[in-house]
Design a protein around this nucleic acid. Sequence first.
DNA 1: TCTTAAACGAGACGGTACGTCTAGTCTTCTA
DNA 2: TAGAAGACTAGACGTACCGTCTCGTTTAAGA
Lengths: 213, 213, 213, 213
Amino acid sequence: MDEAVRAGVARGRPRSERARTAVLDAAADLLVTGGTDAVTMEAIAARAQVSKATVYKWWPSRAHVMLESFFSRAKDTLDVAPEASLEEALTTLVGALTRIFRDTESGPLMADLVALAQADRAIRTALDEQWLRPRRRVASQLLRDGVDRAELVSDTDVAAAVDQLFAPVYHRLLLGHEPLSDELAATLVRQLLAGLRNRDPQRTGACPPRTAR
Amino acid sequence: MDEAVRAGVARGRPRSERARTAVLDAAADLLVTGGTDAVTMEAIAARAQVSKATVYKWWPSRAHVMLESFFSRAKDTLDVAPEASLEEALTTLVGALTRIFRDTESGPLMADLVALAQADRAIRTALDEQWLRPRRRVASQLLRDGVDRAELVSDTDVAAAVDQLFAPVYHRLLLGHEPLSDELAATLVRQLLAGLRNRDPQRTGACPPRTAR
Amino acid sequence: MDEAVRAGVARGRPRSERARTAVLDAAADLLVTGGTDAVTMEAIAARAQVSKATVYKWWPSRAHVMLESFFSRAKDTLDVAPEASLEEALTTLVGALTRIFRDTESGPLMADLVALAQADRAIRTALDEQWLRPRRRVASQLLRDGVDRAELVSDTDVAAAVDQLFAPVYHRLLLGHEPLSDELAATLVRQLLAGLRNRDPQRTGACPPRTAR
Amino acid sequence: MDEAVRAGVARGRPRSERARTAVLDAAADLLVTGGTDAVTMEAIAARAQVSKATVYKWWPSRAHVMLESFFSRAKDTLDVAPEASLEEALTTLVGALTRIFRDTESGPLMADLVALAQADRAIRTALDEQWLRPRRRVASQLLRDGVDRAELVSDTDVAAAVDQLFAPVYHRLLLGHEPLSDELAATLVRQLLAGLRNRDPQRTGACPPRTAR
DNA sequence: TCTTAAACGAGACGGTACGTCTAGTCTTCTA
DNA sequence: TAGAAGACTAGACGTACCGTCTCGTTTAAGA
């Protein structure tokens, strides 16, 4: 009936939750065991014991499957202990990201998604809005609060600072030139907040001048 | 003959330089105009007016074509003025990278290569060894020199610091969440060297304490 | 309950006559307007405003729908006027067939059914027993009566003769090499009964000899 | 070179004769062993050890494969012995058709082609022009010659007569209501030429009157 | 000048995955 | 219990690109 439709009453056979999770699991498994090239719609359907038509019905492309597979897994915390210092809070955020990229399927999934985002603007947008932005927002707010309290210098470029905390993690995930070590998060936060410049050279006391080379 | 072969003397028709450059140009053009998906071996050969066999003869995969296409274009300078300060030198390096990614075909090419590197370990290695490592080496040396002359603090994690300078550029190139602006390089260098922490809050003198939140 | 079932009393919702005729009409309409390929179970159900399950519940395949659709339409007469001559009677039978194939939906339906019969033995059997055989039986009886009364030669192969009357109609329907013209039936009957051989060459009188070539 | 192209000089790898015949054989084999439904492009390619792309390159549809498969096999003779009588000549033609339909793969192939012709006008045309018409032409000419020499009556409808000879064969092939027996051809020719009407009933002399029923 | 051998263009080939379509079946709610 | 809605499995469709192959055709160095 029309009323039924308008009321959102389900008509017909309901969507199979089993199929949905099987697809998401299959995609992640294939990626981890066989690499990007192994994750074809054909292979996903076969491993999930699901017909290709069902996959295409709910996800328009392999990239969208990966996206949902990633989001169904990657649940890092955005909660920061209220009593934590700024340094502690930022370290928690960056450390959580580092660990899920290094220790879970989310790492390969994110790497693959960034690759897919180069070919599909919708994926890039979804990644930005649903993953990056919320995390950047939390970090940005912490930094802005620091500026407001005068804990941080007033000319801080918050966006750039956030990139200096998070980008190295993605960079190492994607290129692998350096490991995602346990200390990385603390190091990134410490070096950004305190800076690299030596303010107490040879025990001269006082705050350090900008020493030209 | 055997002697000729042993002597490395070229026998037969020499490799066509025209074909080589046509292929590299075709790959870059296709990428810029049509996106990653448009760059197929088939399309490269067609646009370059070259047979597929010739492309496969010299490059084992599309990724290798992109790699050489990138390297034949991206010639940013690694030279730093000897009289420049540390901050100036680093800003020059990061700024050069930002500009070639933003203003030339090298940006899309690098983005595509990072994507391809997720599926092809050889590409990842080549990118690392032939592109990233030389640039990281120069920046690392500058930072280590700073530590040696006590301009920088002794517990500096050079590798992490280098990432805090370069990774944001790649991150923005790949995800596009923030622009590759003119000021970015200077900001990244400044914030990393001086840090974000306010050392002179309301003229209270002395170095600032770690203010708990 | 069981008693009711045994008693043949209908339980539950009775079958929808509307659905039945809508399906048969849809099948015929689709065939005439779009050709064989347009007649899919999907399309039939959609046009008939009926669910696919309902179609499958009552007809095991598209071929069976076509079969019933054909039989619900093709009602040519098998009655022959008792006072008619043999030639008139046969002409009536063949003419009726020609006209319903040429002027009604039964033509395309029969053509489609013959095609479907190549893939489905059940359809072939049904076509034979329910359509061909009754018509052949009537014509055969007329011919056999003719033999019995010595109007026809005693060595008549009735089955072959019936084919020589009817087969040309199906042949033209299926291949279209010649039209199903108004005169066709009369011509077929006349030529078969009287033969093509000239029995009165050059007015020599008497019955004609078999002139060798 | 242009001259080469214009001259029809073969460029590139030449077409594989092996692939061509393998496809035609596979199509015929599948049809005979598994029926119409077994003959899919997929199955043809698989059995012929040929890629689907190759099949589609040379044949636009399954129907065209069947068509060529049929023509590569069905080589019945159209030659008639010059000294043969009209009756002998026609019997030869019809008999040859009957035998290749009954005893070779050409029977199932033709049946399938007639079915396919219902959905594809191009197939119908090809069947008509390349198969039916040449055979009908020969028979028609024999009949017309007979009329010219007054062996046959002058009001003979040649087209209808040809159908009365050939159509029964196709009809039995397609519907199977009667067998394609050895005697069929002779019977069809005899009955058509001499007619069914008894001209010498009970030795009454003279040609028989039209006996009303 | 003539041979020779590698590079080249064209394009057919066997594969594989694509994204779509239809066949049938199954599950839920409604009439 | 029939029917409508619609999700499901299965598998063929026709296309595109892959990477390989087989031709005939340059092109220059060496004989």
